[in-house]
């Protein structure tokens, strides 16, 4: 079942960082009881790779992302970015959450500028904010407030807010999960285009099998809680991918089987 991702002879631009997850276990204390969520997860992601994490809901995917982002520390094991241990949040690893979580009191421009402002480098780097807003196609909304945006636009702003920092690893926690299906398909293509252009390493959590297959080089299937890696599947297809591709359909069937949903096929 485990297919080597190295089988793909794609060379990635040097922007992305390597991510190593080694023997990571994590648990939560809930009312005195210990709830294990991650069980010795080992995962090595090459610079510039696009990896999708698939798993049943509540299996601990998002927890793994929080560990990668440095928002929490694992109970055991280690995470390393380019061989440097991850000990806290850093703008080189930016997360885009399922909710855009834009700051409602800031305009689009000010929301995107947040990272540069927090790092104290906004003044000389203002052009980067303009450029990235242009990149996600929201130049005419730069002065709008979040409550004036549609769901898709808000998520684009969230993406711009992450990209302005030129992250080495982009961490996506079901970023398209709440969008309508048409906006979703459009944004999937945009995401691939951005990734190809910028070359960052991408780690995407999703529970949409099709989305994982259309976007990622590699799909990691996780087990039920506590999450373990069940399968590591290379998706060796060039971009842009077609949803009707029989190769992808085959993989989809295989993955649904792994998730215990073969009956739905």
């Amino acid at each position: 079942m485990v297919v080597q991702s190295a089988a793909e002879a794609i060379t990635y631009p040097a922007v992305g960082a390597e991510l190593d997850i080694e023997g990571v276990s994590h648990a939560f204390d809930i009312d005195g009881a210990v709830l294990p969520v991650l069980d010795k997860v080992n995962l090595s992601i090459a610079p510039g790779e696009f990896v999708a994490l698939l798993g049943p809901s509540g299996c601990g995917k998002s927890t793994l992302l929080r560990l990668v982002a440095g928002l929490e520390k694992p109970r055991s094991g280690s995470l390393r970015e380019d061989e440097v241990r991850i000990s806290g949040p850093h703008p080189s690893r930016v997360v885009v959450f399922q909710d855009p979580t834009l700051f409602p009191w800031r305009s689009v421009w000010d929301n995107v500028a947040l990272g540069l402002e927090a790092q104290g480098i906004l003044k000389p780097q203002r052009h980067r904010v303009d450029a990235v807003i242009e990149l996600v196609g929201l130049s005419s909304f730069r002065n709008a407030y979040p409550h004036q945006l549609s769901g898709g636009m808000a998520q684009r702003v969230a993406l711009a807010r992450a990209l302005v920092n030129d992250p080495k690893i982009l961490v996506l926690d079901e970023p398209l999960g709440k969008l309508d299906s048409l906006t979703r398909i459009a944004m999937q293509s945009e995401l691939v285009a951005l990734w190809q252009r910028k070359g960052f390493t991408t780690l995407l959590v999703t529970h949409d099998v099709e989305e994982a297959l259309v976007l990622a080089n590699r799909v990691i299937v996780l087990s039920d809680r506590p999450a373990r890696i069940k399968a590591d599947i290379a998706v060796a297809r060039p971009y842009p991918r077609h949803r009707g591709d029989p190769y992808l359909a085959d993989l989809r069937k295989q993955i649904l089987g792994l998730l215990g949903l073969e009956a739905t096929w």
Binding site: P89, R93, T101, L114, E117, A118, R161
Partner: peptide, 20 residues
């Protein structure tokens, strides 16, 4: 969630208080 976002973007505690 606001604090999480700001922290991943490199915010220090003073930024979290004053700007978030």
């Amino acid at each position: 969630a606001y604090y999480d976002v700001a922290r991943t973007l490199g915010a220090k505690p003073s930024f979290l208080v004053l700007k978030v």
